[in-house]
């Protein structure tokens, strides 16, 4: 598997069951007092990088009927970030999370928003959820794993607040 996956695991194992989010926000805030004042960066979620395949191709769509949406902003001042690549993957009616047809990238618009149409997301490993990643180097890498409140939902959304790398 790819290295981010194991780095994250080691980090999480060290951080223990509770404090991943707080631990991540703590040191980042301490490193940059300016960031601590404004919008805090989004911490990676547990399991967010599972079945990640780096450099998912830019796609118009991966299917139809289900939307993954969100916004990308800069930590601190909250300015929308344009032209940022977000990678998205999930288990859908096409197959599991490792199915290549379920992996794609989109770029954010002028207002920092992104959206990708894909096939219906289905519960995988006990929860209906999507995976989203920012992993292009300009900002710190973030892996998100939003869980849908209902498996019948036709959309899921996740927002990024990115801190400079």
């Amino acid at each position: 598997m790819q290295s981010p996956f194991y780095n994250r695991r080691l980090f999480l194992a060290a951080a223990g069951v509770t404090g991943a989010a707080t631990l991540l926000q703590g040191p980042l805030g301490a490193l940059s007092p300016a960031l601590a004042q404004g919008l805090a960066p989004t911490p990676s979620m547990r399991g967010g990088s599972n079945n990640y395949m780096p450099r998912a191709p830019l796609v118009e769509r991966l299917g139809s009927g289900f939307w993954v949406t969100g916004r990308v902003r800069r930590a601190g001042d909250g300015a929308p970030l344009q032209g940022v690549r977000i990678q998205i993957w999930a288990a859908t009616t096409l197959g599991g999370e490792r199915e290549p047809r379920n992996h794609g990238s989109v770029l954010t618009g002028a207002d920092g928003s992104f959206r990708l149409e894909m096939e219906q997301i289905v519960p995988n490993f006990g929860q209906p959820h999507a995976h989203l990643a920012y992993d292009d180097g300009t900002y710190q890498t973030v892996f998100l794993r939003p869980v849908m409140p209902s498996a019948q939902d036709r959309s899921v959304s996740a927002d990024f607040v990115l801190a400079p790398a």
Binding site: R9, R46, G47, N50, R98, Q127
Partner: peptide, 20 residues
């Protein structure tokens, strides 16, 4: 076999799912 990272997360007690 289906998802090594999800299963390892569960076995190592770092899975995001509460039932693991």
């Amino acid at each position: 076999l289906t998802s090594p990272p999800d299963t390892l997360d569960a076995l190592l007690l770092v899975s995001p799912t509460p039932f693991s």
